[in-house]
Design a protein around this nucleic acid. Structure first.
Lengths: 284, 284
DNA sequence: CGCAATCTCTGACCTGAGTCAGAGGTTTTC
DNA sequence: GAAAACCTCTGACTCAGGTCAGAGATTGCG
């Protein structure tokens, strides 16, 4: 049985087992989901966007919930076009009940397992979650002046400000927008939000430099930095680059470990940036 | 976040990610499932039982598939009450197409991962599968003469016949039906089928013996033997047993390792059974 | 042989989930 | 102040999935 078949097999088994679990109770799934999503109150437009519902459908669902006395829908003060939904006291208890029943069915699933077995289950789930998130992240080349690219670089810079003991001067050290001509800016995106970046840029001597490799805190621990690095190397190699260099700050220990494990050799610093206390090189 | 919440969280993420995968194509899910289940041909009654369908519903589904030219339904030769469904050539290609598209969507999911990452994913999935299977197995006390109990003991005996170099004389060594009076026979059941057993039986001196601990080949590697053993110990302790003994054959190395790791100490053989070459004891 | 059991089919019905085209309010913009 | 934009609601409709009651055909059994 090959890799794909094993994954399909697992999917079948898992969804079958999980399908049995208590999801919406006796309440239709759509209503249960809506109760959950309203939570502390929400505008209908937001609910529609979050749940991907048709406005007519949402309207009917809400009416059903409000005739059951679980939610109230009122015009938002200040803008009466928008209406906001809120749970009533009965709605809150209904939601709590749903939650409790869902928890109970999971607890029933776990009950026969010993603590070490449960621990292994949780670890395996965390591993799968990690890997699936990583698999869902896409890398795309974008212009270094694109809003997403600039947002990543700003986040990168503001993190370095706090990480470097001497601070970080973004204006002086960050790649100015629109200046990346011979190279590629790669943006990592998870479900439409940018979660990392990196770029390579050719030197006048034909070698190239990797810069601004960054992974957002929300996406750390997935192995994304390594993937970005390999993708940058492949892209650069595809553009004829044979020598890659990079400089880094001695306080960025994880980055340094990454470079070493990716086959980069330490070389003497090749520029005068105060932040590049260490330099590395790799021949592609 | 507690254990239960973490499991729920994973379930939410996983089902969301998997839900996107290609399941039935443009074909309704029910029809796709039916195509899959018909496979090389099946009686309608079996299909109903396997898929849990109402007979009217199945009839309509099949009619839809047969007007699409994907299946033929014919009376079974020999018993014209029963009808059997078979895929046509077009049905086989439609099924192959479904399979292929499902495979392709899984392949797309895996594509961004490196081989070691995929390997970790598969391992984690296998671990979860194992643990969920184990959690789904129930242990119930049954009469030693019940059909399920006898079936397990027969399977146990026929396995020993091939495992022991000297063979195994079931008539002489197996617990005769209806003879377990002061003790408990535990049956392990996975989705209605028996997958293991074990019993404890009190000696005249007040101590008790564990016998016939067996796990079906289909359920090995899950940790079921250990669970059975602990359950037997707990049950026996609940009946006032403080000393448990057991005898085993020197060729059953996994069993011996299990006993040792469960805290059993080797003692001199306490009976003259030719199969109990080793004996163990544990004080509860 | 006749009756009961077995199996499948048909028609009638239901629910959840969702789409689509307007109608009718409210606010913003010019 | 009027038009445009925005937001929600209503009515009409679709589809998948499923249940239920009985009709009709066939077979097994006494």
């Amino acid at each position: 049985m090959d890799e794909i078949e094993r994954v399909r097999d697992f999917n079948r088994y898992y969804t079958r087992r999980i399908g049995v679990l208590h999801l919406g109770g006796d309440r239709p799934f759509g209503e249960a989901r809506l109760l959950f999503e309203i939570g502390a109150g929400a505008d209908l437009r937001d609910l529609r966007a979050r749940l991907g519902l048709d406005s007519g459908y949402l309207s009917r669902l809400l009416r059903s919930l409000s005739t059951q006395g679980l939610v109230t829908v009122t015009p938002r003060p200040g803008d009466a076009r928008v209406r906001t939904a809120a749970l009533t006291e009965a709605g809150r208890t209904a939601l709590a009940d749903l939650e409790e029943r869902s928890r109970a069915s999971v607890a029933g699933l776990l009950a026969p397992l010993t603590p070490p077995e449960r621990d292994r289950l949780l670890r395996a789930q965390a591993e799968i979650h990690r890997l699936l998130r990583l698999a869902a992240i896409t890398l795309t080349p974008v212009a270094d002046s694109s809003p997403a690219a600039r947002a990543c670089l700003r986040a990168y810079a503001s993190e370095l400000v706090t990480r470097f003991p001497e601070g970080y001067d973004a204006d002086g050290a960050l790649l100015p927008p629109g200046t990346l001509h011979d190279g590629t800016f790669l943006l990592a995106t998870e479900e439409e939000t940018p979660v990392g970046c990196g770029l390579w840029q050719r030197f006048s001597d034909g070698a190239a430099e990797i810069r601004h490799l960054w992974v957002s805190p929300a996406a750390r621990g997935l192995g994304l930095a390594r993937r970005l690095l390999t993708a940058l190397e492949t892209d650069a190699a595809g553009h004829g680059v044979t020598t890659l260099r990079l400089g880094t700050h001695s306080s960025l220990v994880e980055a340094i470990a990454l470079y070493r494990s990716a086959g980069y050799q330490e070389i003497p610093p090749y520029d005068d940036s105060p932040y590049n206390q260490l330099a590395f090189q790799k021949l592609l």
